[in-house]
Amino acid sequence: MLKIDNLHARVENEDILKGLNLTVNPGEVHAIMGPNGSGKSTLGHVLAGRPGYSVSAGSVQFLGEDLLAMDTEERAQLGLFLAFQYPVEIPGVSNMEFLKAAVDAVRERRGEEAIGSVDFLKLAREACKSVDLDQSFLKRGVNEGFSGGEKKRNELLQMMLLQPKLCIMDETDSGLDIDALQVVSRGINEMRDAGRAFILVTHYQRLLNFVEPDHVHVLAGGRIVRSGDKSLALELEERGYAWLEDAA
């Protein structure tokens, strides 16, 4: 599904990713952990094609295609989804019109027709229920004035509606109350299937208790410095990152 090979990326003339390798197969859940500022969000942004993030070396294959050659929207239409660590507020654009524009773009790329308004409304309402957001959030501006937790739920809502193939979730579990953490975990688990993969960026073992990862990686200094199974997360919880950074 995703093959990242020796990825080097920079932001504002600063090298952030320095030779990152990662392979994700369909059906897998990967957790990426690592100290603040190590480049986890940068990785997500580079994969999603954020302007200002330039790749200086390396390659990324997504579903057998050259991801880095694609526009941001093309990546999304092919099935790449990034749940932002800091979702963006867009006053004046209603959540509803935003969600429908997104769903239609993805459907049309697959050769399907735009979804009818009535069907979409039904779908959106159901999705609201599963992420435990009141329907009134559909009418509000995208993320406008949403609390931190509400923004995270809105990211999950978008993910559910778009049904992407690769879900990169950047600290979707941060800032959530205990119930919301359950909501998010349940949402992820419901979407897990053999054809879909997840990259969960997280600082906490907590999420991984609910969503069991197949692989856990530590990103430090712009590279993956250690990979293991779910026991690695437990070990990190106990020992912190210092022992790994020294090794790196």
Binding site: A48, V88, G92, V93, F98, A101, A102, L162
Partner: peptide
């Protein structure tokens, strides 16, 4: 540019994103 990028990460084509954002600016 960040709001435009956010829309595009959801698959909305650049041109449509710009129209949505311009309209949104006065839609309030």
């Amino acid at each position: 540019p960040m709001t435009r990028h956010y829309l595009r990460t959801r698959g909305v084509p650049r041109e449509e994103a710009e129209v949505m954002l311009s309209y949104g600016f006065i839609n309030e």
